[in-house]
Amino acid sequence: MATLLRPSPFFPTPQRIFANAGKLFFGGPPSSLFLTPAVTKDTFGTLGRVLIGFALGSIAGIVIGVAIGLRRVLRDVTDPVVEFLRSIPATATLPLFIVLLGGGDNMRVAFIAYGISWFVLINTANGVGSIHPTQLAMGRAFRLPWRRQLSGIILPAAMPKIFAGLRIALTGALMFAIVSEFMLATNGIGFQLIQAQGRFQILNMWSWMLLLAVLGLVLNTILEVVENRLLAWHRLARS
């Protein structure tokens, strides 16, 4: 409404943004299902990095978080290190990743995995650390194998907090992907955003931001569906 009442070159109307986004993303030939390179090259490129980095960072965060959460001594020893490292903004470490790994996709995936692993690690460690000792003692009393204790007691009990970390991490993965594409990139949503800004293509810039919002919504909805299915027992137990 504000853009209609007071037109501005910096804030186009929603109608113009949607029309431009349609041409930018769905103006390709029928052979490519009308998808343009903005989707097949840039959007899919960013999405691939997000998903791989999210998977690697989540696995690392859960594994290390479980180890820290189960051992009080290990938690006391690693807590100062974890607090020190996580206090450094992940975006500030991007130049280090570029120096060590170059400017390719491997660097971006590693950067995303590192950035989001802290969210998952801390929530996993807190979730495992808050498990009642009686539950762990029960597994030992029945002499359950370690794998059965892990899959049947530890992970299910910590799963609500793990998913809380995963939800934050998924949003962070998209953000870190965009930031990593601001530098030394040749494709991706972040690269296109910088190009649109530098060329003063305001409509394209807003169209890419609109796509980011849609991607974030879709990814979070998918994770929420997975969480609801896996934690249905948790809601029943609390009701």
Rank of each mutant, 00 (worst) to 15 (best):
T171C: 09
Q201P: 02
M175T: 05
S207H: 07
N220M: 15
A185T: 08
L184A: 13
L219W: 00
R229N: 12
R167C: 03
L219Q: 03
G172A: 10
E227M: 14
A169W: 00
Q197M: 08
F163K: 01
M159K: 05
R199Q: 14
A164F: 10
L170H: 03
M183V: 15
V179P: 05
T221C: 11
L231Q: 07
F191T: 00
L219M: 14
F176D: 03
I162L: 09
G190S: 06
F191Q: 00
L215S: 04
I194P: 02
F163H: 01
P160I: 02
M183L: 15
V218E: 05
L174G: 06
W208Y: 15
N187A: 12
L211P: 00
F191A: 03
L203Q: 04
Q201Y: 06
Q201A: 15
R167T: 07
I222N: 05
I189S: 05
R229W: 12
A173Y: 13
A157W: 01
T186E: 12
F191Y: 14
M209A: 09
T171K: 07
A196D: 10
L166G: 02
T221V: 15
M205A: 13
L193W: 02
V225R: 04
A173L: 09
G165Q: 09
L210A: 12
E181N: 08
E227A: 01
L212W: 03
M175L: 15
F182G: 10
G216M: 13
A213W: 13
R167H: 00
F176I: 06
K161G: 04
I194C: 05
Q195I: 12
I194R: 07
V226M: 14
L217S: 11
I194G: 08
L203A: 07
L166N: 02
L210F: 10
A196M: 13
I222D: 02
F191R: 02
I168W: 03
G198I: 06
F200L: 15
V226S: 09
G172H: 00
L174Y: 08
A158R: 01
V179H: 07
Q201I: 04
N204G: 08
N204Q: 13
I189R: 01
L230C: 09
L166W: 00
M205G: 12
W206D: 01
A158L: 10
L219Y: 02
F200M: 14
L170C: 11
F191S: 04
N228S: 12
F176G: 01
A177L: 14
F176N: 08
M209Q: 13
V214Q: 08
V179G: 10
M175V: 13
I178Q: 00
I202W: 05
